[in-house]
């Protein structure tokens, strides 16, 4: 048995949207770029500016590896276009430490061995910063639940909770 399958009807190349001026404020620094509107915030960071600390694990809002803070709120950078964040305050993993002094969460992640390959780690840490700011996590179970938007394929979950708890002192 055989039959012919046509995957795509003939699509024609469309004229591309022109690049737009975008002003991204990242870790306190201004970046003025010309970006086509289809560039995600994640790709703007990684490919256009060079902040590769923010990771791409799915590009579909399913893993949390791309978590950054926008005006203090944790979001998935793959699920937002760069042009939508014009002028907003963006914090990435590169912006958490104070010079050589690690952010308490960064230090706690090292101390509690809260990662293995480290690829989910920037997203986990940014997410934890956002979590603490939200003030909703009262218990260990709350932390587990509210950190569940960040997959860790290496399975460092229990150490991630330990690390966060060590910073919050058990209660937030």
């Amino acid at each position: 048995m055989s039959n012919t399958v046509q995957e795509k009807t003939t699509l024609a190349a469309q004229p591309l949207a022109e690049p737009l001026p975008v002003h991204l404020r990242i870790n306190g620094e201004d970046h003025r770029l010309q970006l086509r509107p289809w560039v995600s915030l994640l790709d703007a960071l990684r490919e256009y500016i060079g902040y590769t600390g923010t990771k791409k694990g799915c590009d579909h809002g399913q893993c949390g590896a791309c978590t950054v803070l926008v005006d203090g709120v944790r979001i998935n950078a793959c699920m937002t276009l760069a042009v939508m964040r014009d002028g907003q305050e963006i914090t990435t993993i590169e912006g958490l430490a104070n010079g050589d002094k690690l952010h308490p969460l960064q230090a706690a992640f090292v101390e509690h061995d809260a990662f293995q390959c480290g690829y989910c780690t920037p997203g986990q840490i940014c997410s934890a910063v956002g979590l603490i700011k939200e003030g909703r996590a009262k218990t260990r179970d709350d932390i587990r639940e509210l950190m569940s938007g960040n997959i860790c394929r290496c399975g460092a979950y229990t150490n991630i909770v330990d690390a966060i708890e060590s910073v919050t002192g058990g209660t937030i």
Binding site: M1, S2, N3, T4, V5, Q6, E7, K8, T10, L11, A12, A13, L16, R36, W38, V39, D43, E47
Partner: peptide, 21 residues
């Protein structure tokens, strides 16, 4: 030249197959 362009252009390929079971 960019990731977005490559991804977009990939949707413009016209592909036909002869399928076997």
């Amino acid at each position: 030249e960019t990731f977005e362009l490559a991804r977009y252009a990939s949707t413009l390929l016209k592909i036909e197959y002869k399928e076997e079971s």
